[in-house]
Simulated assay, not measured.
Amino acid sequence: MHATVLVLVENVNAYLPLLEQQGFQLILAPTPAARAEAIKTHAQQIDAVLTRGPLGLTAAEITALPGLQIICVIGAGYEQVDLQAASNRGIAVTNGAGVNASSVADHALALLLSLVRGIPQADAAVRLGQWPKVTRPSVAGLRLGILGLGAVGQAIARRCALGFEMQVSYHSRQPRPDQPYRFCPTLKELAEDSDVLLIATPGGAETRHLVDRDVLEALGAKGFLVNVARASVVDTDALLQALQQRQIAGAALDVFDDEPQVPDAFKQLDNVVLTPHVAGLSPQASRDTVAMVGRNLQAHFSGQPLLTPLVLPPPS
């Protein structure tokens, strides 16, 4: 397979040989400077781009790559890829929806348990020679509300319902009659009926700030928020205010608005758990993600149907 792939991602290097073994030539550009230089220097030879949602690919960059045929996004999110620009050029776009669902669901459960049971605070206290006996809620039997019931949301729901006997409800654009969980027609109703509100919906304009002050108020002073999706889904200012004023019990966050910058206000709180956007990272997930990219690239350049194509807007 003789095609050149511009690789903008920085977290799957160990598995990129899978693409090279299929005959693809790779140009690695994991930093903004390297990215700009690679597009400037190799524009004529680049046939495909491998990116991820927050890194995206802009309309200007798409225009600068005259031979670009396909954009492959690792993970489910593709919020910073200019789909309209791709559509206007007839460029295919794929994502990796569901490939890392198990890893994200595992991390979501780790965050949920750490938050509700106060694990980071207990660990820090013991390291300081303290021995606090703090009573924390039991996770078993809590009401879990999931925003977004795609592959990740379903994986989380199964773990919580079967492993912790949690009562699972969800809100999404459409009900999922194939799933055994209760559908809430509005996000506010979901928050009102949940002890833990867990965000598992894609980012982008359609979901921006869905979790706002009203939703956080509905979640209430005993409610917890867990976000393993995109920071843009939550109004960060409203969340900080709710945490600072104890309008909700706590939050566990794997995603932030301006990564890797995390607001100092979060770091000063004792009712948050913070991780550096690692929910989808595991050896298995990285391997399977790159393998999916390889299958999509092979399908495209051999004229076969793509495995995970995105539906693009009509050309304008």
Rank of each mutant, 00 (worst) to 15 (best):
H2D: 13
L6N: 00
V12I: 13
A14W: 03
A14H: 06
Y15D: 15
L16Y: 01
Q21H: 11
G23F: 10
T31L: 04
A34Q: 14
R35M: 04
I39S: 01
K40N: 13
T41G: 08
H42Y: 14
Q44M: 12
D47H: 14
V49R: 00
L50W: 05
L55T: 15
T58F: 12
P66E: 01
V73E: 02
G75E: 07
E79Y: 06
V81W: 00
D82C: 06
L83V: 08
L83N: 04
S87Q: 05
S87W: 02
G90S: 09
T94S: 09
N95S: 07
N95Y: 03
V99G: 01
S103D: 04
V104F: 01
A105G: 08
S114Y: 10
L115I: 07
G118H: 01
D123M: 05
A125R: 09
L128Y: 11
K133V: 15
V152P: 06
R159L: 14
Q167C: 10
S169V: 11
Q174P: 04
R176H: 15
P177M: 02
Q179F: 12
R182C: 12
F183E: 07
P185F: 08
T186W: 13
E189V: 10
E192D: 10
E192N: 12
S194W: 03
T201A: 15
G203N: 08
L216H: 01
L225F: 07
S232I: 10
V233C: 00
L239T: 00
L239G: 00
A242P: 00
A242T: 05
L243V: 04
Q244R: 12
R246P: 04
I248E: 02
G250S: 08
A251P: 05
L253W: 14
E259W: 00
N271S: 08
A285C: 11
T289A: 13
T289E: 01
A291R: 03
G294V: 06
N296E: 04
V311L: 15
V311I: 15
